[in-house]
Design a protein around this nucleic acid. Sequence first.
DNA 1: CGTAGGGTTGAAGAGTATCAAAGGCGGTGG
DNA 2: CCACCGCCTTTGATACTCTTCAACCCTACG
Lengths: 248, 248
Amino acid sequence: MGAASQQLEQLSETCSHCSLNYLCLPYGLSQDDVSELERLVSPGTPVAMNAELFGQGDTLTDLYAIRDGSMKTVVVDEDGLEQILGFYYPGDLLGLDGFADQHHHCTAVALESTRVCRIPVDRLDRLVDKLPSLRHQIMRLMSQALSDEERLLLTLGRKNSEGRISSLLLTLSRRREMRGLDPSPVSLSMKRSELANFLSMRLETVSRVLTRLQRDGVIRVRQSRVDILDREALRSRSSRGAWAADQS
Amino acid sequence: MGAASQQLEQLSETCSHCSLNYLCLPYGLSQDDVSELERLVSPGTPVAMNAELFGQGDTLTDLYAIRDGSMKTVVVDEDGLEQILGFYYPGDLLGLDGFADQHHHCTAVALESTRVCRIPVDRLDRLVDKLPSLRHQIMRLMSQALSDEERLLLTLGRKNSEGRISSLLLTLSRRREMRGLDPSPVSLSMKRSELANFLSMRLETVSRVLTRLQRDGVIRVRQSRVDILDREALRSRSSRGAWAADQS
DNA sequence: CGTAGGGTTGAAGAGTATCAAAGGCGGTGG
DNA sequence: CCACCGCCTTTGATACTCTTCAACCCTACG
């Protein structure tokens, strides 16, 4: 199964043949519509590690879909506080929060050497006029992003440190499966300090929790690679230690 | 100014004459387009206090715009954890997170006696096909919702209890201004326990912080009514006590 | 081989949660 | 109209998780 699922990450220069299209913009479109879509996509733009794809405040010109690699998005408020909003992997779409006022509300940075497909919004907008199925898919993806953030709010708000780390590992594992990869060796391509920022913890606490989970035989940590040894234990730790579902 | 701004909350049975239309779906539409829109809107459906407008998992049939009153949205995860996602006021649109899979991902409950405008999604969808400006506005509103949640993530993730309460009060005040009301007497129509849940605190902590802010002359609390006495102090407390914008 | 950045581990302290009890406020019924 | 009751809120004392500060370790890389 390992070899077979690796094959799924074979990429193509066209959306029609891209193995990730069912996660991405083309999902739900007819063959003809996908052909129209792929005419305006520039595939394979490279982004170097630590380079910005777009910055908070930049004018919205393109949406981006990740082909391979990984990225993070960060928002900085007026007090200089910095919060990582999410980590993104192949098939994920970036830039959707820019429709509000035609400006990006966060900064996107590559966690490793990454390639993205670039989709100009003005041409996309004209195509959306013609293709209701494309409009539906974009709204589905925005709605999806909303739901994902709601889930994150729940995790950060109601779980303790062990619950947060466990939830994150399970989520990353599940997302690997959705891309057709093996669920188990999760690659933490971000630094401990980035994990901590994302989960609203301190990096020392992240380290301690990972150590504890390893000591108890739930996971195995080897630098950035994390093997999930006992999925069930991880699941139970992701809910235990959570705060009571208190009174109305 | 109090009287004048009160007038702005005069409501009408039609979107064209509704004083909140610049916050709501009609924004950016031509007069003719608004007329088309208002033909499919049922204005003024009443929702009793504590009644559900829609429930998590329900099929998405309508979007809702609040006319007067207030609501909260709640999400419950598989472990029974409950998280309040937001509080909503006149002009706010509810149900946008249901486009992902045609089901609501949260439950909407009235905090007081509330009236909402009901907008059937199937008819809205057909109208969106005809009116690009309406599509733009819906995407703007979804994008806006995304940005709002990102801001909430930042507040919950990086601020201590005093910072969270202060931020919330300032936000509620700002939203009153956007609706043309006086910024100062903020009405906390939700219970302390709901505030606590929303801000990921315990209700005792909420109470202590409010007491402290009142003792220091920043606000005055009288049951559900909160006067903001020193806006600048509130602003500084909303950022002080926040965690460091730590290393990359 | 030596340095630097990231990661781990340890001890002390702050901020909240938790448990417990008392204090208002509104609603109901006598 | 007043008294009682229940729910929400406030206040206090204690416990615990996580942060903070500090030192050390490891791995990558010139």
